[in-house]
Amino acid sequence: MMVVSKPKKISYWKRSSNARIALLYLLPSIILFSVFVFYPMFRTIYLSFFLTDQAGEAAIFVGLENYTYLLESDAFLNSIKATFLFVLYTVPTGIIIALILALLANEKLRGIGIFRTIYASTMGISVAASSVVWLFLFHPSVGMFNKLLNIFNLPQIEWLLDPTWALFSVSLSTIWLNTGFSFLIILGGLQNIDEHLYESARIDGASYWYRLKRITIPMLSPTLFFIITISLINAFQTFGQIDILTKGGPSQSTNLIVYSIYKEAFINYQFGTASAQAVFLFICILIVTILQFKLGEKKVHYQ
């Protein structure tokens, strides 16, 4: 350790010259990160130990009380449950759909470009715009979905007003919205796979499914790993569609953690509890990502 000072000929100043140069190069990003990432992060952690006054400044130090309150609060436990359910509904389905579409669009056909453009098109639509469109589709009295159900004489569904359906409805719109991006990334991954591998396999008489299982998926695994990580983090941080479609309701069934943080901070002006929730979310995402890297990365095949 550093405390044990050994007599050395080279001075500390000289020894650390590499570090100083490194630091110089890193300085721009350290400054930017400090202002936009580290400072807000430390400030959030700091605020999570306080009750805040009406101007949002720390007023009374309460230690861990905000955290214990959260863990005992039914509303927050419900938010955690809703968030995990939402992740479970959207991430696997979204990626599987994107993968199937990408496999289809990867075939060499005339005019395949048109399909690729259409499949990827949801990427170009903002969350807000698409949510408004979905809002009309789900509309309780004039919505398209209920009109369709009516034609087939099926019972009407209160898509966004029934707590048992609301999370499903929001998930549906999210899957639709995210498919474009996942599709594009996976298609990019597919195009990168060396054509020779398929040629050799074909010469060996391998079937389509065999090629899919033995060549496509393994060669695609880095891309899939990337898209799973990104999708997971995105799903945990979903906000826009909730704000527009349900505002966290009905009966808190779609009150995902990020939305709950927003409400706590900017409607209730309780920055203390909101910060505690934010720290909690940060820890959740951190754990999930670490787990993913530990468990998932072993299966990833890098060329």
Binding site: M2, R15, S16, N18, A19, A22, L23, L26, I30, I31, S34, V35, F38, Y39, F42, R43, Y46, E57
Partner: peptide
């Protein structure tokens, strides 16, 4: 040592940011 040094610098910097903010308040 160098990584420790970087970490220290980082912590100091964030501390400055915090202090700066309290001052302005």
């Amino acid at each position: 040592n160098s990584s420790k040094f970087a970490l220290l610098a980082l912590l100091l910097l964030s501390l400055f940011a915090l202090v700066a903010c309290t001052n302005s308040e």
